[in-house]
């Protein structure tokens, strides 16, 4: 509940901030449109040569693109930008003001930066998924829909906790902004179902960077080809990673030395 309250408080500030600079909406629309067009063109190109890609049809791949936008939009709404700001604050010593507030420090630092325009990506994701479902001609039965929502939430939780853990490293290494850049690059790979990649890369994209759990698994649930073991794995990871990230955060706070006097 605190978390939701903090998000709303910071959303208000974000909106106020946005209203100071009105050009952002246009830029964001443009950026999202370009990203969507790139995805669609590459799918069209691949399927002009073949009917199936590692067992995925064109409309199923469209579902993957939809999930890619949805999860990307959800995580970039506040968690990723907030963690980016956190890393910057550790380096510049501005974190002190966040740590003296009478709310849970981890909740606070994951909500301080809200990028309201990322709602656009979330909407694009939902629309693309809708189109993909229509194209596939399947209607989601309630159980399938429920499983999709579960793995989707699990995916968002896994990605968020994962980046949280990376960001916490800033307490020891101070300059870790590059980690987020690397993560973004790896996340790009999730535009395609990870099953099309060679096994070593699949492994990396599942366990090293949990893009597989965040995008491919929910997409598989959507198109009805999800293995129950993956479902169990995603849920388990969505429980273990946040707990670990909590513990790691506490360790980080102990190690925090503050930017010098």
């Amino acid at each position: 509940m605190t978390w939701l309250r903090l998000i709303l408080i910071h959303l208000r500030i974000a909106v106020l901030n946005e209203l100071q600079y009105r050009t952002n909406l246009g830029l964001q629309l443009f950026q999202s449109a370009v990203a969507l067009a790139t995805s669609l063109v590459s799918i069209a190109f691949v399927f002009s040569k073949t009917d199936h890609l590692a067992g995925w049809s064109a409309s199923q791949l469209l579902a993957v693109v939809g999930v890619y936008f949805l999860v990307g939009g959800l995580t970039q709404l506040f968690i990723l930008p907030s963690l980016g700001r956190f890393m910057e604050d550790v380096r510049l010593g501005a974190l002190d003001f966040a740590l003296i507030k009478p709310v849970d420090s981890q909740l606070l630092i994951t909500t301080r930066q809200v990028e309201a325009w990322k709602v656009i990506d979330v909407l694009i994701g939902v629309c693309v998924i809708g189109v993909a479902l229509v194209q596939m001609g399947t209607s989601l039965d309630p159980i399938q829909a429920m499983v999709f929502v579960i793995v989707l939430v699990a995916g968002v939780v896994v990605v968020s906790s994962f980046v949280m853990i990376l960001a916490t490293c800033a307490f020891w290494f101070i300059r870790v902004q590059n980690i987020l850049v690397i993560f973004q690059a790896m996340y790009e790979a999730g535009r395609w179902p990870i099953t099309i990649y060679p096994p070593w890369l699949q492994g990396a994209l599942t366990f090293l960077v949990p893009v597989g759990f965040a995008i491919t698994v929910p997409a598989e649930a959507l198109v009805g080809r999800l293995d129950w073991r993956l479902l169990a794995g995603a849920v388990a990871l969505a429980v273990v990673l946040p707990v670990f990230s909590r513990w790691f955060w506490m360790m980080g706070l102990r190690a925090y030395s503050g930017a010098s006097a």
């Binding site: 408080i9 500030i13 106020l16 901030n17 600079y21 010593g93 501005a94 003001f97 009478p102 606070l108």
Partner: peptide
């Protein structure tokens, strides 16, 4: 160091602290 948000009026930053 300052904690007020740079780009918005001071009163809005106060409102943020009030809420927290």
């Amino acid at each position: 160091r300052n904690q007020l948000v740079w780009d918005i009026p001071v009163a809005d930053s106060y409102e943020l602290n009030r809420a927290i």
